[in-house]
Design a protein around this nucleic acid. Structure first.
Length: 104
DNA sequence: ATTCTGACA
DNA sequence: TGTCAGCA
């Protein structure tokens, strides 16, 4: 497991950002008995993905939709901002927005 | 020395 | 988001 200091270096995100995304539910981080965040290699990958989405112009709201869609086997085709972008399934088929599929 | 939460700009 | 306080 990694500590926040390590995660900060490994992801290129600030600790402030990591805590913020955790608070927004984009990542679920385990805690040590003392309350220290313990990040797994998966968390690191997830955070790096979040960093990429951020650079692509996404906000926490659309990231949540995209990350949830991923779990449903969907992928954004265009830079899906607020409502824009089109979505495709694993076969390249156009589908409804994951907001419709996943909800919330 | 590090990390944590809460809070203000 | 950055940063600072006050803890653990």
């Amino acid at each position: 497991m990694f500590t926040m200091g390590a995660a900060e270096r490994l992801t290129g995100l600030t600790q402030r950002q990591i805590r913020y995304y955790e608070a927004k539910g984009l990542v679920r981080l385990a805690r040590s008995p003392s309350g220290q965040r313990l990040l797994t290699a998966r968390d690191i990958r997830q955070l790096r993905r979040i960093r990429w989405l951020l650079q692509q112009g996404h906000n926490v709201h659309t990231m949540r939709v995209i990350l949830a869609a991923d779990g449903a086997g969907l992928q954004p085709q265009r830079g899906a901002r607020e409502n824009g972008g089109q979505w495709v399934n694993n076969k390249g088929r156009s589908t409804a927005s994951p907001r419709t599929v996943v909800g919330r």
